[in-house]
């Protein structure tokens, strides 16, 4: 099936999103309270068992979904809201402005999210917001690059010349001609970056550079599970699975969208 990527990715993401949505209102137990014996195996009432403290694993996974999506949405939105306009300006401008903006983005590109997170954590202490900031800033250059490349391609089209002949102001050209035509490409990037953001957040909280200890995140759950790996390996499985599903879901969706965008063999009518 040609649309396999799209479908599988969509399903995986739907599962994660549903979990998070449910988690807004209800979790089987409180994710942070001790509600059962330590390291209980999956059964009833703890469907996925309990962790090293005795908290319900399923509730913690659901809670983690909320956070993962929150971090994803905030960091990718921020990155896109900053990166896309910069990229469009770079794509529409003459050489030296574009050069300055591109070099700026490239410099930023050199700072991986991890480094930024460490810097922020050292400065103000690690939290969900420092994670969002670090990941967001690290994602800006990607959007600048993609937006710039797509903009340049649009600018070479004749209809942009026609807009110039209509004396359309540059802002209008960006808003009505460039943006609608680069939107599909940006959409693909949003999906891909979302997956990367979730992965990055998991990594940061695994290292203790993200959310505080009272906020259950998948990364933190992995860290805690490490200690109990020989006693109860299952405890590591669930957060790992959740991270994998979320990341893969967004990646596949991005791939599926990219395939959709490719000029297909159009039906010769």
């Amino acid at each position: 099936m040609r649309r396999a990527n799209l479908v599988v990715g969509g399903v995986l993401i739907a599962v994660i999103v549903s979990m998070a949505a449910v988690g807004l209102f209800w979790t089987p137990f409180s994710p942070t309270a001790i509600s059962g014996p330590r390291l209980a195996p999956p059964g009833w009432p703890h469907v996925l068992g309990t962790d090293g403290q005795g908290s319900d694993t399923a509730s913690r996974i659901i809670s983690g979904a909320k956070l993962a999506l929150l971090v994803g949405v905030m960091s990718v939105s921020a990155a896109a809201l900053i990166g896309v306009p910069v990229g469009i300006i770079a794509g529409m401008s003459h050489r030296w402005v574009a050069a300055i903006l591109s070099r700026g983005a490239d410099i930023l590109y050199g700072f991986p999210a991890l480094l930024l997170a460490i810097l922020f954590a050292a400065a103000v202490g690690g939290s969900t917001w420092t994670a969002v900031a670090a990941i967001g800033i690290a994602t800006i250059p990607v959007f600048v690059r993609i937006a710039r490349a797509a903009t340049m391609q649009v600018m070479s089209q004749t209809f942009v010349e026609a807009a110039r002949l209509s004396a359309t102001p540059p802002l209008q050209v960006a808003w009505r001609h460039v943006l609608p035509n680069i939107a599909p490409v940006l959409g693909v990037q949003v999906s891909v970056s979302f997956g990367l953001a979730i992965l990055a957040e998991a990594g940061l909280s695994y290292l203790g550079l993200g959310s505080g200890s009272d906020v259950p995140t998948w990364g933190r759950m992995l860290r805690e599970a490490q200690n109990e790996l020989f006693n109860a390996p299952l405890v590591a499985l669930w957060p790992g699975l959740a991270i994998a599903m979320a990341t893969m879901g967004f990646n596949l969706l991005g791939d599926g969208l990219r395939d959709l965008l490719d000029p297909k063999l159009r039906e010769i009518a």
Partner: peptide, 15 residues
Amino acid sequence: SMVFQDPNSSLNPRM
């Protein structure tokens, strides 16, 4: 005003 040669690229496909 100008009329261009290629009717495919002289009109914004998303407008």
